[in-house]
């Protein structure tokens, strides 16, 4: 079963939030780049970056939510998550993207692209998980 969305997005997605990279550097959430995540994961002993490709985006019975099906990692494991339409994912080489960019910008002031089938999102797994 998909994970149920929370009623509000975490405050770190708000434009202007200060994010600390693994090397200690501070950046604003809207300034993060693909390389920041990749380099931070390289430093991490526990976490590694996986590619998660959007396979399907379906409507949900929960108001203002969608169910996104991802194909995760080299083994293409199918994972479904239920998130609010404004929830931002970071797409490789593109940046923040959500199912409803206008709503993300309205609620968080964070500029977003439209998340579409085929987009490859940055996600995390444990390095020890094999």
């Amino acid at each position: 079963a998909p994970v149920s969305p929370s009623s509000a997005l975490p405050s770190y997605f708000m434009k202007g939030s200060i994010i600390q990279l693994a090397d200690g550097e501070l950046k604003r959430v809207e300034d993060l780049r693909t390389e920041d995540f990749l380099q931070s994961a390289e430093v991490s002993k526990e976490l590694k970056i996986d590619s998660s490709t959007v396979e399907r985006i379906d409507s949900s019975r929960t108001p203002d939510a969608v169910i996104i099906q991802f194909s995760v990692g080299e083994h293409k494991v199918q994972v479904c998550v239920e998130v609010l339409v404004e929830y931002p994912f970071f797409v490789f080489g593109q940046g923040w993207s959500s199912c409803c960019p206008d709503r993300t910008t309205q609620l968080l002031a964070l500029s977003c692209a439209k998340l579409s089938v085929g987009d490859v999102c940055i996600s995390l797994t444990l390095k020890s998980l094999r």
Binding site: F13, S17, I18, I19, V77, I122, L124
Partner: peptide, 25 residues
């Protein structure tokens, strides 16, 4: 005197979803 307001700092990994598939081996 005005106390400086502390700004919250979030770790980079909080922004990335944990899509760890369950391995069945």
């Amino acid at each position: 005197n005005v106390e400086p307001r502390s700004v919250p700092v979030f770790p980079w990994h909080s922004l990335v979803p944990f899509l760890a598939p369950t391995q069945s081996d």
